[in-house]
């Protein structure tokens, strides 16, 4: 059992948890993830590590309340416990001095991007950060990321804050000579940014979090085509060359259980109403 030490609401339906797991905190690195299961009947869900405090034994992660498990998680409070957490899983990000790094994050993945930017900044990189969300009220960590970046941009799908959409990036990428680009967010964002950097040959790293069960390469549900080769996101990734990922396939595979996922969330919500 893993105790939740702190809960923050980053934005509507986006929560930040700090959990006591000293053995994971001791080893966690940017780019890695955990898999948690909230109770015996629960599903195993992967979440990117968004922070750690080795001394206090704390691991942090953020999640979006979209499915049954994340909605159930969202009800947990400080002092509540999560049944089991496995980690750290996956390969850590490559962190070194690249030069000029473009960091683009959208939605809940803004949370682990802050950790990534801290590490890249410490390694001596010049950071251009872009954070995006559907609407203005869904943005978070704006000041934290701004403070760590040399250049900073905001984008929203509806234009309620900053640029409307990611189209403006084309100009920036055309003007600046970036040495590396890191993208974290929903698959369409990964794909869009990879297409923007492709013509300029900027090495672009995308962080993939497809469906997973065991998280150690045993089930293979997280398989993705990268450069035409089958890779397992959990053990070969989760970061891959954004210019080589087959995004259409990835999106289709992510929707594999969408009907069941909706049914599960709906039944749970109905039960929740009935039983208070």
């Amino acid at each position: 059992m893993y105790e939740i030490l702190a809960v923050k609401e980053l934005a509507p339906k986006i929560k930040w948890f700090e959990v006591y797991a000293p053995h994971i905190a001791k080893k966690a690195k940017p780019g890695q993830f955990i898999i948690l299961i909230i109770n015996e009947r629960g599903e195993r869900i992967p979440l990117t590590i968004a922070g750690y405090d080795r001394e206090k034994g704390i691991v942090s992660f953020a999640f979006n309340e979209v499915g049954k498990t994340t909605k159930q998680l969202g009800l947990l409070k400080e002092g509540d416990r999560i049944w089991n957490i496995a980690g750290p899983l996956g390969n850590p990000s490559e962190i070194r001095k690249f030069g000029k790094v473009l960091c683009v994050a959208a939605g809940v993945m803004i949370a682990p991007m802050l950790l990534q930017i801290k590490a890249l900044r410490e390694a001596g990189n010049e950071i251009t950060a872009v954070i995006g969300a559907r609407r203005r009220d869904l943005l978070f960590f704006v000041e934290d990321i701004k403070a760590l970046s040399h250049r900073f941009y905001v984008a929203t799908d509806d234009g309620s804050e900053g640029h409307k959409g990611l189209g403006f990036l084309k100009e920036i990428v055309a003007k600046e000579k970036f040495d590396r680009c890191i993208v974290m967010g929903p698959v369409p964002t990964l794909q869009a940014v990879s297409e923007i950097t492709r013509p300029y040959g900027i090495p672009t790293i995308v962080s993939l979090m497809p469906l997973m069960v065991d998280g150690m390469g045993m089930c293979g549900v997280c398989r993705v085509l990268v450069g035409g080769k089958m890779k397992f996101a959990c053990v070969d990734g989760p970061e891959f060359d954004g210019h080589l990922v087959d995004y259409e396939e990835l999106i289709r595979r992510q929707r594999m259980f969408i009907v069941e996922e909706r049914l599960s969330a709906l039944l749970w919500e109905m039960g929740g109403l009935k039983y208070g």
């Binding site: 053995h23 994971i24 080893k27 890695q32 898999i35 089991n84 957490i85 496995a86 980690g87 750290p88 899983l89 150690m216």
Partner: peptide, 10 residues
């Protein structure tokens, strides 16, 4: 102990 990934956790 569950959730321990030897090679990563230790």
């Amino acid at each position: 102990r569950f959730g321990y990934v030897i090679g990563r956790t230790f």
